[in-house]
Deep mutational scan, measured.
Amino acid sequence: TETRTFTDEREARRFEQEARDNGKDVQVRESNGKFEVRVK
Rank of each mutant, 00 (worst) to 15 (best):
T1P: 09
E2M: 12
E2H: 11
T3P: 04
T3Q: 06
T3A: 06
T3C: 15
T3F: 08
T3E: 09
R4K: 11
R4H: 15
R4E: 07
R4N: 08
R4L: 12
R4G: 06
T5M: 12
T5H: 13
T5P: 03
F6K: 05
F6S: 04
T7Y: 13
T7R: 05
T7S: 11
T7C: 15
T7H: 11
D8P: 00
D8Y: 00
D8G: 00
E9Q: 05
E9H: 04
E9F: 05
E9Y: 07
R10A: 15
R10N: 14
E11S: 07
E11Y: 00
E11D: 10
A12S: 03
A12H: 00
A12V: 03
R13D: 04
R14G: 07
R14Q: 12
F15C: 10
F15Y: 12
F15M: 06
E16H: 01
E16P: 01
Q17G: 04
Q17K: 11
Q17Y: 04
Q17E: 09
E18V: 08
E18Q: 10
E18A: 10
E18L: 10
A19M: 15
A19L: 10
A19H: 07
A19N: 08
A19F: 04
R20S: 05
R20G: 03
R20M: 08
R20P: 01
R20V: 07
D21K: 13
D21H: 10
N22S: 13
N22P: 02
G23E: 03
K24L: 14
K24W: 15
D25N: 09
V26Q: 01
Q27D: 11
Q27Y: 12
Q27I: 13
Q27K: 07
V28A: 04
V28Q: 02
V28S: 04
V28W: 12
V28N: 01
V28D: 01
E30A: 10
E30H: 11
E30Q: 10
S31P: 01
S31Y: 12
N32R: 03
N32W: 00
N32P: 01
G33R: 01
G33Y: 00
G33S: 02
G33W: 00
K34N: 10
K34F: 14
K34L: 14
K34V: 15
F35H: 03
F35G: 02
F35M: 04
F35T: 04
F35Q: 02
F35R: 03
E36M: 05
E36S: 01
E36R: 02
E36P: 02
E36H: 07
V37K: 01
V37L: 01
V37S: 01
R38H: 12
R38L: 14
R38E: 14
V39F: 06
V39H: 02
V39D: 03
K40C: 15
K40M: 13
K40Q: 12
